[in-house]
Amino acid sequence: MSKFRKEDKKAAPGVNTSSLPDIVFMLLFFFMVATTSKESDPTVKVVQPKGLRTEDMTPYKQRSEIDFLYLGKPLNPGRAAKYKEMGMEYLLFMDNVAQSTPDDLYNVNAIRRWKLDKFESKPPRMSEPIEGVITCVKADEGAPSGMIFDIRKELQEIDALKIAYAVRDNGNI
């Protein structure tokens, strides 16, 4: 004689997951819209200095009127030691350079070929001449400014007359 009914061994109802794909798709679309694709994974370490009143490069990126160049110490310690012996502490990194030897990749002399190759491979609808294509230099805080001017010299030779110095902007926007 029991006043309480014996609890049924009922299974817990399963959570309805039919809307899960919708939620995930929503997230997916958000990220697709809010982000831009990484142009490359540099093999040099770049800590950008801070700066104010900068210009946003996103519109140029969308029109592919900008190429990125990295300047920093190599991430790979072995490579760092090897180049340091040669007196090169800071190295250049260019993405997708058609290099003949891996050493070429870090040399200022490769800039011309890299820049021209990049320009050739731009979509034909892009009307901007090479003078208008920005070269954005992402340099490490400690990099010597002399290298920036070496890059400028190379760009001048091929009439790519726009350069941008990348910094981290914590101020406006």
Binding site: F31, T54, M57, C136, A160, I163, R168
Partner: peptide, 27 residues
């Protein structure tokens, strides 16, 4: 959908590129 989402998370960046644009004098 998750697979796609993770793919996009990995291959994209959120941070904007900020820089100072300067002109190089013509040779």
């Amino acid at each position: 959908a998750f697979l796609l989402l993770i793919f996009f998370l990995v291959t994209t960046t959120m941070d904007k590129d900020q820089a100072y644009v300067r002109s190089i004098p013509k040779r």
